[in-house]
Design a protein around this nucleic acid. Structure first.
Length: 221
DNA sequence: GGCCAGGACACCA
DNA sequence: TGGTGTCATGGC
């Protein structure tokens, strides 16, 4: 049975360091985390660039911006009506409870921070954990659709494992190391994008030798 | 032209 | 608590 540390090192060797999150500021991480919900990162990059060119990548600027303007600027990500509201709800929350200061929000223990983030409309578990890990720089493992699919195909967890169970699965096996958490999640996304898609592309997958799905499918052929 | 992308929420039983 | 519909653009 393969363990997570082995998988981590194999992915790191194959893909190299990912250096996530791709953003210049903590606030940009948060905006990106919201915008990338069920959207491709290439589209998010366009929207971020639009916001940046209008000087809107700060909590205060976003708070003041009109919804109409936001909708127009983030249009490339899709779901722009909903995501405009999500961005607005977050900066309103930050303004009303933390004087618009991210440091004050992040100056809480991880569990309280997580609950605070989850109380904001539009921020679910994955987005909250992404913000905690990549913006607040606190070790919490991020689970996404790729992670779930990969772990399931490897045969390490059941297909219908919940978010929190899968999160525990990682956190109990890995050392609580911030950099490993950051890098591992990024590597899993890279693996997912390149090989472990809805339709598997196992050809050159770096960990197909330990994949239960691959073993059973190659046996069939 | 269909499928999919670094989810979350509302509504229903 | 689980299952389904909705949100929507852009790349392949």
């Amino acid at each position: 049975m393969a363990n997570l540390i082995d998988i981590y090192h194999k992915l790191l060797e194959h893909f190299g360091e990912q250096g996530w999150w791709p953003a210049e500021t903590e606030f940009e991480v948060i905006v990106g985390a919201i915008l990338t919900q069920a959207s491709s990162w290439t589209n998010v990059e366009k929207a971020i660039e639009n916001l940046k060119s209008e000087g809107l990548l700060s909590p205060e600027a976003l708070l003041q911006a009109s919804e109409e303007k936001l909708r127009r600027l983030i249009k490339p990500v899709g779901y722009y009506n909903a995501k405009t509201l999500k961005l607005k709800r977050f900066v309103e929350f930050l303004h009303e409870n933390y004087e618009g200061d991210l440091d004050k929000l992040f100056d809480r223990d991880t569990e309280k921070l997580r609950l605070e983030l989850l109380s904001v409309w539009g921020i679910g578990q994955e987005t909250a954990d992404s913000i905690i890990l990549y913006a607040a720089n606190k070790p919490t493992f991020v689970i996404d659709a790729y992670t779930k699919r990969i772990m399931s195909r490897l045969g390490l967890v059941n297909e219908d494992t919940t978010y929190s169970d899968l999160k525990k699965f990682f956190e109990l096996q890995l050392p609580g190391d911030l950099e490993i958490y950051k890098e591992f999640h990024a590597l899993l996304v890279e693996l997912g994008k390149n090989y472990c898609k809805t339709k598997p592309l196992c050809g050159k997958c770096p960990i197909r030798d330990i994949c239960a799905e691959w073993k059973s499918s190659s046996k069939r052929n």
